[in-house]
Design a protein around this nucleic acid. Structure first.
Length: 493
RNA sequence: GGCAUCGUGGCCGAGUGGCUAGGCACAGCUCUGCAAAAGCUUGUACAGCGGUUCGAAUCCGCUCGAUGCCUCCA
């Protein structure tokens, strides 16, 4: 189904700073590149949020019927610790620290990355290329940039000539910076640099003898600069110009700015039609930082083994929490906020469980069709998941009213409602019903039904001590009884 | 210091020149043996100070504060 023909999507393009109608370069097809993690430590919760935003975007594109090629790289080499001069590879540093091979570091944290994303119900990207697997492609781009006169070699290293580039192109157009300002604000460099100008960045760095990760090149043994891999891999798999490039806000400068420069300097074309940037996640109102202890890992939230939160929260709740904020807004994670989201999450899940049980009638008090379009309108407005969720709660309200017999719904509307809820919650937001998936087994419901029966017996005998005991001890086990007009049901908390 | 994003009711979080976000919490009511669950009702908020306008929380300026990048940190 090519839904995209009927839904006009708008996206916030960081390049223009405006919301623009989304029109892919090739009709029906989308190329999307997202900067993936550097696998030198456990994946950070803030990274998870960024990737989750793009996972949702990927899901929505697919839902609209686009054929999407989603490329998310793994950075397993090449990122220097700083851009100045004498940098060390983050991975090489970690390898030294742990006394293992660099590729062991890479393997360990790539596995952690995949495991974590799986817990949060991520869809795998179409291609997940690695930097070390594309050294040749990176070297080829450097050659092109040198041939076009925008890079120079010194002592086995190659640098991008930003000032030269800025004469014919606009360096800083993405991040709103002006080269003159950057030059004026440059600080004194402590180490002497072989770069012509401090703004220049490395395309290829010569490997010192002790450097473990190294590859041969026309300029001697070395390793690629930190912005080059994304240019090489996005060009290889998506072409010189593609639709969407995403990443965290923190990558806007210099990383994405340099990517634009590299592409324009090699192919002569601006690489990306729409730049999308996901905003940061803070913890208790402050930035996350390992050094101050204001930091939490995804696994620590799920297990509850941390000093920051009062309890454990399921991956589904965390995902729901993140989807309640717009991807371009800073989101603050706190115990209070998670607690509130958890309750809302269960309310939504209960609502979804109840749809199938609704009795149908001759007419509908709930205009499902116009509600459905409101859901699309929310997503079409730059993937506004908070508004979508508010619409989902609107539906929950009607579901509950129908359940209580205060409103009615036709069979056709009920089916449409059920399908739409499933589509938006599970397929697009990627939120699962964790409790139901985990242990809502036949045996359990049989046992609880039995207890409900015993409790009702006690109640009709006015033996409230017994009936309350059953109710209270079940709630202590996480099973909530719900007394309604048509008897008692239960749900897991 | 520069650039960027932002500052919304008790909390989280949308929106944006005049008209309802939503969730959680709180209160009242309905329901109940009492509760819980569910439903209904209520909240007139938009950092501060100026300016533009018939009208601004929404536009402009300044101030303060937060977060990100520029510098190791996601």
């Amino acid at each position: 189904m090519q839904l995209y023909k009927n839904q006009q999507l708008k996206v916030h393009n960081s390049l223009s700073g405006k919301k623009e109608p989304f029109e892919p370069i090739n009709e029906g097809h989308i190329g999307m590149y997202v900067c993936g993690p550097t696998v030198y430590s456990n994946v950070h919760l803030g990274n998870c949020r960024t990737f989750m935003s793009f996972d949702m975007i990927f899901r929505y594109f697919k839902h609209l019927g686009y054929k999407v090629r989603y490329v998310r790289n793994i950075t397993d080499a090449g990122h220097l610790e700083n851009d100045a001069d004498e940098g060390e590879d983050k991975i090489a540093k970690k390898a030294k620290l742990e006394q293992i091979e660099p590729m062991e570091v890479v393997q360990r944290y790539t596995v952690d990355f995949h495991n974590t994303l799986q817990q949060f119900n991520f869809l795998p990207p179409s291609i997940e290329p690695t930097a070390t697997g594309h050294i040749i492609e990176q070297i080829e781009i450097i050659k092109e940039i040198i041939d076009n006169g925008f890079a120079y070699e010194i002592n086995g290293s190659v640098y991008f000539d930003v000032i030269k580039f800025n004469e014919t192109n606009d360096y800083g157009k993405l991040s709103g910076r002006k080269l003159e300002d950057m030059i004026a604000n440059t600080r004194e460099l402590t180490a002497q640099s072989e770069k012509r100008n401090p703004q220049d960045f490395a395309l290829w760095k010569k490997a010192e003898p002790q450097h473990i990760m190294r590859w041969p090149s026309p300029w001697g043994d070395g390793f690629p600069g930190w912005h080059l891999e994304c240019t090489a891999m996005s060009t290889k798999y998506l072409g010189e110009t593609f639709d969407i490039h995403g990443g965290g806000m923190d990558l806007k400068f210099p990383h994405h700015e340099c990517e634009i420069a590299q592409s324009e300097a090699s192919s002569g074309k601006s690489p990306v039609k729409y730049w999308l940037h996901a905003n940061m996640l803070t913890l208790n109102g402050k930035k996350m930082s390992k050094s101050t202890g204001n930091n939490i890992y995804p696994s620590e939230i799920i297990t509850g083994e941390n000093d920051i939160l009062s309890k454990a929260y399921s991956a589904s709740v965390v995902r729901f929490f993140m989807m309640q904020a717009h991807y371009t807004s800073i989101l603050d994670l706190s115990d209070e906020a998670l607690l509130a989201s958890e309750k809302g999450y269960y309310r939504l899940m209960d609502g979804m469980d109840n749809v199938s049980k609704l009795n149908t009638g001759a007419s509908s008090d709930f205009d499902v069709k116009s509600w459905l379009q409101k859901c699309y309108d929310a997503m079409n407005d730059d993937f506004n998941t908070p508004i979508l969720i508010s619409q989902l709660f609107e539906a929950v309200k009607h579901i509950n009213l129908i359940k209580e017999g205060k409103e009615s719904i036709t069979e056709a509307d009920k089916t449409l409602l059920q399908n739409t809820m499933t589509t938006f919650v599970h397929e697009i937001l990627g939120i699962e019903n964790q409790a139901a998936a985990e242990d809502n087994s036949q045996t359990l419901s049989g046992v609880v039904e039995l207890l409900i029966g015993l409790r009702n017996e006690a109640r009709s005998n006015k033996d409230f001590a017994t009936s309350d005991k059953i109710r209270d001890e079940l709630i202590a086990l996480g099973i909530q009884l719900k007394d309604g007009k048509d008897g008692t049901t239960f749900s897991l908390k």
